[in-house]
Structures are given as C-alpha cells and as structure tokens.
Design a protein around this nucleic acid. Structure first.
Length: 438
RNA sequence: GACCCCUUCGUCUAGCGGUUAGGACACAUCCCUUUCAGGAUGCGACACGAGUUCGAUUCUCGUAGGGGUCGCCA
C-alpha cells in the first residue's frame, strides 16, 4: 500500500512554526516514499474558525513549498477536504458505532463513545511502543449537543475515509492516541502507523506561543527570510540527516528523510541559526534573483529606480553583508538617492580632522579628471589622490565611502562610485564638503 | 493529582559498551582588511544515584528536572 499522509490544521489561528514543521515532515515523508500528501481542514468548531486563518495556512504552506496532492484547491477522490462539509459521512459512521453498541446519548443530546477500557499500545515510529493501561477517564464525547462532531471522532473517521497510512503529528497528541486507536478498533479498522514529533520550544524552554519570536510563519516572510532557508532550518530541528554540512537542498532532504530518525526530545528554537541559514541562501542568489526577492522591502522603504540592472548590481554588492532581506534597504538606500543622511558619530569624528576636506577635494579632482568610468579607473583615481596628498589608501577609502554613502560600512568605494556614475560621485563629494566636512 | 514523552557543550546535534566525546550556530582571541565579509585558533557537555559488565555517554532501575495530556478546543 502506498504511503498516504496528511496535515490537518484547524483554521483558528495563524500558521505556527510547530504546525509548519509537522506539515514539513509529512511532506518529506510522502515525497521520500513517492506517496501522497493531503491537506485536510479541521474546521468543526465554527465559532473559532476564521477565513484569515485559513488563508494563512494556504499561503504559509505554499511559501514553504509544501504542495499538497489532495485537499482544498487541489481536489482528490476523498473530498470534501473541509470537515465542515462532511457531516453526512460522520452521521453514517456514528450509526455504525451505535449499531455496534458503542455509543450512548446524554440527556442534552450529546453523544459519548464507550471506551473499551482495555490496555492499548501505540506503535510509534518516534517513541516506540507506548502502552496505556485501561483508562478510568469518563467516556469521551464525540458529538456535541448541537449536533457538531468532536475532533477525536472526525479525525479518526477521516483518516479511515482518506486511507491515511501514517499519522505524523505533534507529540502533544500522543497522550490521546489510545482514544483514537480505540475508535479505529470500534470501526473494525487497524490504526495507522504513528509518528509523534517533538514540540518546538521557545528559547526559554516552554512551548512556543503566539508571542514568541518566530512563532508565526508570516513573520518569516515579513522579516525577509527565504523559504528554502526556513525549510532547511526546520528540517534540522528534531531530525538530522547526518551529513557533513547542514545546508542541504530540498532534493537532498527528501532523499535522506526517515521518520524513524526523528528525535523524541523537544527542541528549542534558535533564531540566530535560522538567520545564519538565510544568509547562506541569500548568497546563492543571482543579482536578478536577489533584486526580485528584495523588491518588496525596497518598495516599502520608498526606494525607486529606473535602471533595473543598476539596481540589481547595487543590491548584489551588499549580499554578503546581510542576513535578512529586510536589512537590505538600510545598506543600499544611498544608491537610489543623493540626499542620504550621514551617520552622526562618524561625522563627528571626521569633522575633528580638518585635513579630511583636503583629502576629499583631492579625490574629487582626481575623479573629475577621469575620462572613462570603470571600477578600475575609479580605483586608479583614488590612488592618484592618495599619492598627491601623501597618505595611505587606508586613510582615504573610509572617508570616501562615508562621503559617497553617508555610512561607514558598505561595499567597496570603487563599486559604489562606479555604480552611481561619475557625475553623481562628484556631486556627492561636493555635498559632503558643503554640508559637513568643511 | 494521574498518565505519557524527554534529558550530551548556551542552542541544534553526532555517538548506538572501549572515542583525546565529533560537527554546526553563538561567543572569545588572532590573522587579513577600506568597513562588511573571510580565514585560523579557542571556549564549552554526557542531570544525579544505584545496578549489569573487565569496561558505561551508550543497557536496566530509581531520583530530580523539563515538556505534554487528561474539554460538548483542535
């Protein structure tokens, strides 16, 4: 039988990292085995569902590249994939249970499932065999007084109806799994194979909540993470492919993934490491690719341009200096405007040395005298100016970067000057001289 | 409270009876340097206590600690 796994979120909040990683493991498992990954929306609690949450789930999964083979907007033979639309199926299953003498109705109409009250063993790929002693808990409610069905019931019914072979879900469900197995047995079915994956904890060691940094998948988009970086990092939280390096392609991760190797211990979320992965992936992008990824952030910062190639080159010149796309505008804004601000602290330091204006003026003359304008010629001009003033290049370069960009850190001076052009370079020095360094 | 899961550097982890306990992120120092980046080195862990064994990080039990579950939420 081919592998069929599902991610079954309920649209009551934004897509959470824990949920995303559960989806990710399901997806990896399906892809590794050439199986089917389904998405099922568990929206049986009308009061708590929202359209926004539903949209966030779809968007988040798509952003991470977790495409589903069956489910909303994808179709499939086991639909509908919204539990809110499967009432008739649940009614039929409830009848089966009732016919088997396993239900009873409360005075207010709620229906309860009679537990078998036998010992039940969960066969779990991650935790091994976990046996639960005969329960003393009250029989569980499977249908509300108002007719709506409860999670445990619909979850099991749908896993049966959708031929789910492996249930990969958060460890918070482990303690309830015996109830599900009891239901499977009551329906005369074998339970699927389980894999309960550990939880993602915040840096403090408690369960990630909405307030914790990195909790919502949307926050990664907003901060300028690349989906492949988040994908890579999340894979390595609770599972290790035991490879030499940790930066691994999607294909490699799919090929190496094994649910039985998922850890059974919870893992703390480390934003620094996730960010490091992002920096690694950022460096792989082409100038065009980087510009495309950074575009929303540049627009948000109000930066505009006409020359796409120049913009791409400008952004590409700082790609090794940033970890997140959201950091890019601050590193490149001066490429797109000549009224950039000057860092105050640096300005104060430079002002203290009157000779700086002489150096800048010398550089300005050397630039103005250039007939061609390449990175090499810019560099030559700086060398000439340094010679004339009898100073080292190390004294001139930081000063020039500051004049041309208003910042003390950035790409090489030759790169900046070349990209903004000769006229702008001269204007920028003039402005620096006129404005401050005189 | 009952039940379940878990426990190796600060964090993610390798290890599956004998290792100088390895790597990554972070951190520190040094090198390079026009800043950023980069390179090198270093710092740093088997929760504790009993067993089993010639020998335990590794196997068993207990303790402690962490997490989770016990809803007409999912």
């Amino acid at each position: 039988m081919s592998v069929r796994v599902r991610f079954a979120p309920s649209p009551t909040g934004y897509l959470h990292v824990g949920g995303a990683r559960t989806a990710l493991f399901n997806w990896l498992y399906a892809r590794h085995h050439g199986g089917t990954f389904l998405l099922r929306i568990e929206d049986t609690d009308e009061a708590r569902n929202t359209d926004a949450a539903m949209a966030a789930i779809f968007e988040g999964l798509r952003w991470l590249g977790l495409d589903w083979d069956e489910g909303p907007e994808a179709g499939g033979n086991c639909g509908p994939y919204f539990q809110s639309q499967r009432q008739a199926i649940y009614d039929a299953y409830l009848e089966k249970l009732t016919a088997a003498g396993r239900t009873y109705v409360e005075p207010d109409g709620a229906v309860r499932f009679k537990f078998s009250r036998a010992a039940i063993t969960v066969h779990d790929l991650v935790c091994g065999d976990v046996t639960f002693a005969p329960t003393e808990e009250p029989d569980m409610t499977i249908r509300r007084g108002n007719g709506g069905y409860i999670f445990h019931f619909v979850n099991v019914v749908d896993d049966i109806e959708m031929d789910i072979t492996h249930v990969i879900r958060g460890e918070d469900h482990l303690s309830n799994t015996w109830k599900h197995i009891d239901l499977f047995h009551a329906f005369g079915k074998e339970a699927p194979t389980y894999a309960h994956v550990p939880l993602i904890l915040n840096p403090t060691g408690s369960k990630m909540s909405k307030r914790d940094e990195g909790s919502a998948i949307q926050s990664y988009v907003d901060k300028g993470f690349l989906p492949e970086a988040v994908f890579n990092y999340l894979c390595l939280l609770g599972w290790t492919p035991r490879t030499e390096g940790e930066k691994l392609s999607r294909e490699t991760l799919v090929a190496l993934f094994d649910a039985a190797e998922i850890h059974s211990a919870n893992a703390r979320f480390d934003m620094q490491k996730c960010t490091w992965f992002n920096a690694q992936y950022l460096r792989e992008l082409s100038p065009e690719g980087l510009l495309a990824a950074a575009r929303p952030f540049l627009q948000q910062a109000g930066l505009t341009w006409i020359d796409e190639a120049m913009a791409a080159a400008a952004i590409f010149s700082v790609k090794e200096k940033v970890s997140l796309l959201s950091e890019i505008p601050a590193w490149v804004h001066y490429f797109f405007r000549e009224d950039y601000p000057f860092e105050e602290e640096v300005m104060a330091k430079l002002k203290a040395k009157p000779e700086n204006s002489i150096l800048l003026t010398a550089a300005r003359e050397a630039f103005a005298a250039q007939s061609e304008w390449t990175e090499a010629s810019v560099h030559t001009a700086v060398e000439e100016a340094a010679k004339v003033c009898a100073v080292k290049m190390g004294a001139l370069m930081p000063l020039l970067r500051f004049a041309l960009s208003g910042q003390s850190r950035g790409p090489g001076v030759a790169t900046i000057a070349h990209l903004v052009g000769k006229d702008s370079t001269v204007r920028r020095i003039d402005r620096a001289l006129a404005l401050h360094l005189h």
